[in-house]
Structure formats: structure tokens, C-alpha cells
């Protein structure tokens, strides 16, 4: 790693100020950023550690019924504290990486990074959640903008994610055992006015909504409704772990398993 300074603000306001310094970058759990720095793929001169900001941590049910998770909340806490309100999301958090990763990695870091195989983006997009930053609120549909790319501006911090709670939801993850990330995973959320399906690990453009499946499932919430629906393998990630055609097939299988688990 190249060397850098570390700042440890204790409020969002101080963090934003620290991030206005030249070449400054936020550090949350470091579970993605520290390996990236070791590989010298980034060379910030200042890391602004967000882990000391208590106003960015915690899981609470808001008056409007949404589940609000502070951007600095680690996966382990979400797995434990979201369980009674939104078990589908808690179960996603409980299966990220391994126990030590879950003790450090945060929801804010995960959505800001938008790894094309990350778990949270699927849960956030399928729930129709809202990403709250230090300066505005962004709908999930506008937030994720392709592989490792989001609507965040330079120096903008994810402070909270607000989840509408569906009637029921399930995350099906086909694990890639070497990385512990999904090879492909699907999150199916059934609301009283329709179904949302988000897929991670598959597309060259990162997380996406599988709208054909949403339409079919909104009309008839059954595995049969998915029969005959096909995705194009040509726009899917193709690597040594699986071809695009294989991934496209897995999307169907994971979505079907999620639906079967909910009926």
C-alpha cells in the first residue's frame, strides 16, 4: 500500500469536511477498500474513517413503516436486528462473506462500491429502497448505474438506507465458493401492489431488475409463471467461473427457488 493519512471524524458533518481534502476517500469496514489499496488500484492521500460516527449506525423502524439502516451498520448487526422486521433482508446480510467480513463490512460501503456480484445491491433494488446521503435522497432505481458505478458524487457519503418492507421476500444466493460472493443471486420481494425482482452477479451492467419476471409474478405469484422466460446470455458476465449462458440460466433457477420458498 502507498501511505496515507487517516482521519477519524465523529459526525457526518466533520466527515464531509474531511472528505473535501484533496485525494480523500471514505473508509468503512475496509473489507473491499483495504485489499484494493494493497493491490495499488487506488492511491488516496487521506482515508476518512466513518466507523467512529455513531449517528450512522443502527437499525430502526421509522414511523412510516420503513426499516432504516445507518450507512455504517455492519452486516452482522443487520442480520441480527432486521430479523423481526424484515427477515428476507436479515438473511441476505447473514450470508455475506464470512463471520469476520460481517463483523466489519457495512451496508454503506457495499452499496457505494456496487460490485457487480455484491449481495446488498440486489436487496436494495428489489425492495425499492431509498439511499440517503449527507446531501439528498436517491431512489434505488436511479442509484445503481452499472458495474462499480453509482449516482454518488465525489465526497458524498451514504448515511442511511430506507427499506419499504414487503409482504414477503427471499434472497437466493448461488455461492462462488472461492470468493464467497454470489456467482448469481436473485432477490424477490412481493408487495401488495406487485413483485420486484433484482439480480446480482449476472449482468455486465451490474445489478438489474428482471422486469419480465416481475410482470409475470405480479400477475401470478407461482413458479409456473416463470416458465418460458429467458434472459440473453450475451449481455451476462462470462469468466472462468461460468459462461454468460450458464449465468442467464442460473438467474431463472435462483428466481424460481426464491418464489418456491415463498409459497
Amino acid at each position: 500500500m502507498y501511505n496515507f493519512d487517516v482521519e477519524k471524524p465523529t459526525s457526518i458533518a466533520d466527515a464531509v469536511k474531511a472528505l473535501s481534502r484533496d485525494e480523500a476517500q471514505p473508509l468503512s469496514g475496509g473489507q473491499t477498500l483495504i485489499p484494493t489499496l494493497k493491490a495499488r488500484l487506488a492511491m488516496p492521500s487521506v482515508l476518512v474513517s466513518l466507523s467512529g460516527i455513531s449517528e450512522m449506525r443502527g437499525v430502526r423502524l421509522a414511523d412510516d413503516g420503513r426499516l432504516c439502516i445507518g450507512g455504517g451498520t455492519v452486516h452482522r448487526t443487520v442480520a441480527q436486528e432486521a430479523e423481526t422486521h424484515y427477515p428476507g433482508l436479515a438473511s441476505l446480510a447473514a450470508r455475506i462473506g464470512d463471520p469476520a467480513v460481517r463483523n466489519r463490512g457495512t451496508i454503506g460501503g457495499s452499496v457505494a462500491n456496487n460490485d457487480p456480484s455484491a449481495c446488498y445491491p440486489a436487496g436494495v433494488l428489489a425492495s425499492g429502497a431509498t439511499i440517503v446521503t449527507n446531501s439528498r435522497e436517491i431512489e434505488a432505481d436511479n442509484f445503481f448505474q452499472g458495474m462499480f458505478s453509482t449516482a454518488l458524487e465525489e465526497g458524498e457519503i451514504v448515511t442511511e438506507v430506507k427499506f419499504p418492507i414487503p409482504e414477503k421476500a427471499r434472497y437466493e444466493k448461488f455461492i462462488q465458493p472461492a470468493s464467497r460472493f454470489p456467482l448469481v443471486a436473485a432477490f424477490v420481494a412481493k408487495f401488495n401492489d406487485g413483485v420486484r425482482v433484482a439480480v446480482t452477479g449476472a449482468s455486465e451492467n451490474g445489478v438489474f431488475r428482471w422486469t419480465e419476471a416481475e410482470t409475470a409474478l405480479s400477475a401470478d405469484f407461482s413458479a409456473k409463471a416463470l416458465e418460458g422466460l429467458k434472459l440473453d446470455g450475451g449481455s451476462m458476465i462470462s469468466d472462468l467461473h461460468g459462461s454468460g449462458t450458464y449465468r442467464a440460466h442460473l438467474v431463472g433457477v435462483m428466481t424460481k427457488r426464491a418464489v418456491l420458498g415463498l409459497i
Binding site: V6, Q31, I34, S49, S51, A100, R104
Partner: peptide
């Protein structure tokens, strides 16, 4: 808590 010491800065 279980932590990977290769992925945490000493100052943290």
C-alpha cells in the same frame, strides 16, 4: 469480535 487483522488498520 472475530476480525481479520490483515484487513484492519492499526489506527482503527
Amino acid at each position: 469480535e472475530a476480525i481479520k487483522a490483515c484487513t484492519m488498520l492499526a489506527v482503527e
